[in-house]
Amino acid sequence: MAENIISLRGVGNRFGSHVVHTELDLDVRRGEILGLIGGSGAGKSVLLRSILWLRPPDDGEITVLGVPLRAATDAQWKAIRRRWGVLFQDGALYSSLTVSENIQVPLREFASLSPAMMRDIAAMKISLAGLRPGAADLYPSELSGGMRKRAGLARALALDPAILFLDEPTAGLDPLAAEAFDALLLSLRDALGFTVVMITHDLDSIHTVCDRVAVLAEKRIYAVGTIEELLQEDYPWIHEYFTGPRGRAAMKAGETGKKRPEDTLVRG
């Protein structure tokens, strides 16, 4: 289980003279849910965009599913992009397509299925992501923020990815919806067995769903580990982050939250 599905070595990013990352190393293990935290402007989103190769890093090497991205061939790229799913911050749904059509986009592109089958699969993903069936034929502009995130998740899951990238999945959701989203993520991970890398600011969801947390500070991954391990680190920011008033409340909730039966099924 400890095999690394993503590894970053010596990654550096800069905008002009402004250095965002330098000598950044990070390993993501197969099957884990890794939280990526850091202050505003620490470069979490830039790092995610680097891993996705939307903004290739200026230095260093990123290896995903055993393929070094810098040297990847077109065929390898196609295979990799088929095996990861991304949930962007506001869902990034195609606004001219309905939810069902949005989910069918990757199916249409990569798999050769009949339209009825694609519709059937899309309906299942919609249900898996916790949306009601009626949402299938709605356009993104007709959805609420929480529904857009769920629809984005359904699209990210369309091809049963090995890796799922989530950019602040619970930001902007009300606490109950955020909790439901976390439970959904756990139950899907257990059923489908994917690896998750999630940027988040939500202390509750860090405590409930993340197996390990990576702290982005000082232009690199300052520390990686479980929250208990991170608290051993001698870095004030980490302590303030986890033991501030919000952090303490979340920690208490997290202890009880972890004991939740794992096969709870959540419907939206």
């Binding site: 309906a123 299942m124 249900s127 898996l128 034929d137 257990d190 059923a191 096969d263 099924l265």
Partner: peptide
């Protein structure tokens, strides 16, 4: 076990009786 779990999850979400297009 994983396959059976998966099958169960999917069956619960297969949306039998979802109105067709």
């Amino acid at each position: 076990r994983d396959y059976l779990n998966l099958l169960e999850q999917v069956a619960a979400n297969s949306g039998d009786g979802i109105p067709a297009a």
